[in-house]
Nucleic acid binder design. Structure first.
Length: 619
DNA sequence: CACCATGGCGCG
DNA sequence: AAAGCGCGCCATGGTG
């Protein structure tokens, strides 16, 4: 059925296309799976969409180069289903969001009366009703795997292990330096069809329907001796109530993440322009100096060579391929050229990373710079693989320097934001049940002052540098830093740090004990748990060193719990119609004169106080 | 030209 | 020899 752009995989024979369409129209497909194909992973233009009707049958609808003759059938199938299973559907949903936005922009009267610019408050966007309804009946096999801490989340690996089915990977069908558009559409369709079947089968294998309930359960799989059999993985998987709860939170997050992607952040165009001009002007001074010296300050290689030939001592980098020229090293040098280079670095980072993408007068160098430049800043969200924390990509908005945040403009005229106060230390107190730390937080005492008194008994509370060192100690010890690292951060001798490290661990013996136990758990299980009972997979020995794995073992429960709390906070805010513009790990930025609810402090087992701010500018 | 590794640095 | 975790993104420099 080449010309019509529709493909079927399954046991049935349809003499003509009309028979297939009749079949699709007549039958009810209750639990379907869905997968999109894009040009490449990076170029997320939609080229086709597959639907797994059940565990044996799937259909594919082409979008590019020519759309199929039956686009409405695609939406109909999605609409009539009760459950839609995806595999890492945040990605697919993002693709669909962009596709639908584009589609509606070209068709002034959108399907269902919806249009992206159709909103009473400027900048207050909603996601297309189609995506909204998909989100309400979404299941996600990748998220299931992540919450359980399964060893691999890749669709091909999971299907091979758990349902004994081998499917193609993109690299199997796509030669290097090619895109899906270079392949005959039938090849793409075929891959998509099998992916859909795989997702559907995985959903059932993992007891899909039980994931929307609250009763714990087990699912099992058989050894796949032909491939994918991992003797270290148990054949029985217990899904606890905690895992279920976290999974459901993850699913509910999907439409919210889409909404944030669709809304973006407003910009003050004149501020962007002004900053850009100022920074460019200053930059010129420094690059002139470097040009006269005959090197490019943006090249670490040239910087290293130039500084070394001027008689400076520079250590090698970790790989020993170049000389080390990072900030820490250059600060130690007395050569004035070193400060010139540092100034240049700071300014060019600012210009290239944080200003150029938002300045409409600058030539596009990255495709994702294109969206409404100078008017709004857009980004996309995903969950990180180890701890599930959110990350923002395609112009990340989660790493904007403090001092430049004034370029972002609230649509309502005022930003409101809430910061959790020392959330990771509080989580540490809770998971470790360390009596000293818990008592300090319960009484509302200052934990850094407590540390300071133990490490520097005669110090003054008002002494900022000692206080900063106490903070640094607490922060670094969250991850069981070695004396060497502590020394680097506090600029104290290693021997002193080693001594203080011992005192710190003795002050908080519960933390010491918990960290040792957690490391042991990590080795035994291959994962460690957040406060909510969610598992975080640890890196395996073939890709990470033992030491690193142990650091991860104590780090993930804390970072992961931080995400668990933030995710619930976001959902609570959203349910109260707070217009969330951007989450940043322990902070929520909202648009409008918002009063953040105090319930946000009681989402974990220990109170997590927050402070809130408002203003014309963020920060 | 597309793609990758490297060094460096922004955020939490 | 290596000595705190997670992430994204920039420019350079090298490859096929």
């Amino acid at each position: 059925m080449d010309s019509s752009g529709i493909a079927y995989l399954g046991p049935r024979d349809f003499p003509t296309e009309d028979h297939l369409l009749d079949y699709l129209l007549d039958q009810h497909f209750d639990t379907i799976s869905c997968d999109v194909e894009t040009v490449t992973i990076k170029d997320r233009r939609l080229i086709g969409l597959g639907i797994g009707l059940n565990q044996q049958e799937a259909v594919y609808f082409r979008i590019m180069p020519e759309p199929s003759l039956y686009p409405n059938m695609t939406w109909r199938l999605l609409d009539q289903a009760q459950t839609i299973a995806g595999h890492n559907f945040i990605f697919d949903a993002t693709v669909l969001l962009e596709y639908l936005n584009e589609f509606y922009n070209q068709h002034p009267i959108g399907v269902g009366g919806w249009h992206p610019t159709d909103s009473s408050i400027p900048g207050r966007y909603t996601i297309p009703p189609l995506l909204q309804s998909i989100a309400l009946k979404l299941a996600d096999t990748s998220l299931m795997g992540q919450m359980q801490g399964l060893p691999s989340l890749e669709l091909a690996n999971m299907t091979s292990r758990y349902v004994g089915m081998e499917i193609q990977r993109i690299s199997d069908i796509l030669p290097q330096r090619h895109t899906m558009l270079d392949l005959p559409w039938g090849v793409v369709a075929n891959k998509c069809l099998y992916d859909c079947l795989a997702t559907n089968r995985l959903y059932w294998k993992m007891e899909g329907p039980k994931w929307s309930g609250s009763q714990s359960f087990i699912w099992t799989h058989q050894e796949n001796w032909d491939s994918g059999f991992d003797p270290s993985e148990p054949l029985t998987h217990w899904v606890s109530e905690g895992i279920l709860d976290c999974y459901q939170v993850g699913i509910k997050l999907v439409p919210l993440l889409l909404k944030m992607t669709a809304r973006g952040l407003g910009l003050y165009p004149n501020k962007v322009e002004h900053w850009y001009q100022e920074v460019s002007k200053k930059l010129l001074v420094y690059s002139d100096i470097c040009t006269k010296e005959g090197f490019n300050p943006s090249s670490p290689q040239q910087v290293g060579y130039t500084l070394a030939s001027r008689g400076n001592f520079l250590p090698f980098t970790k790989s020993k391929k170049q000389l080390k020229t990072d900030e820490e090293t250059l600060e130690e040098l007395s050569d004035p050229l070193a400060s010139v280079i540092l100034e240049h670095r700071g300014l060019s980072k600012l210009k290239g990373t944080y200003l150029a993408p938002y300045n409409p007068h600058i030539e596009l160098t990255k495709p994702y710079w294109a969206h409404h430049r100078g008017v709004r800043a857009y980004t996309h969200y995903r969950m990180d693989l180890s701890t599930a924390r959110l990350s923002s990509y395609d112009r990340s908005l989660m790493n904007i320097p403090d001092y430049i945040r004034e370029i972002f403009a609230p649509d309502t005229g005022v930003w409101a934001w809430a910061d959790y106060d020392q959330i990771e230390m509080r989580i540490m107190a809770q998971v470790s049940q360390d009596p000293t730390m818990m008592a300090a937080y319960e009484r509302g005492e200052d934990i850094h002052w407590l540390t300071q008194q133990r490490l520097w008994p005669n110090s003054d509370r008002a002494d900022e540098s000692t206080r900063l060192r106490s903070k640094t100690f607490g922060f670094a010890m969250l991850y069981r830093a070695q004396a060497h690292t502590l020394s680097k951060h506090t600029k104290l001798p290693i021997s002193t740090c080693s001594e203080y490290r011992t005192i710190w661990l003795a002050t908080y013996p519960g933390v010491d004990e918990w960290q040792l136990e957690t490391i042991a758990d990590g080795w035994n299980q291959g994962w460690t748990e957040t406060m909510y009972g969610r598992r975080c997979r640890l890196p395996s020995l073939d890709i990470a060193k033992p030491d690193h794995i142990e650091k991860c073992a104590v780090n993930y429960p804390i970072q992961g719990t931080g995400f668990d709390i933030l995710a619930r906070a976001l959902l609570l805010c959203d349910s109260l119609s707070i217009d969330i513009a951007l989450p940043v790990h322990d902070e929520i930025l909202a648009d409008g004169i918002v009063e953040f609810p105090r319930q946000l402090e009681d989402l974990g087992r220990l109170r997590t106080p927050f402070t809130q701010h408002r203003g014309l500018y963020w920060k």
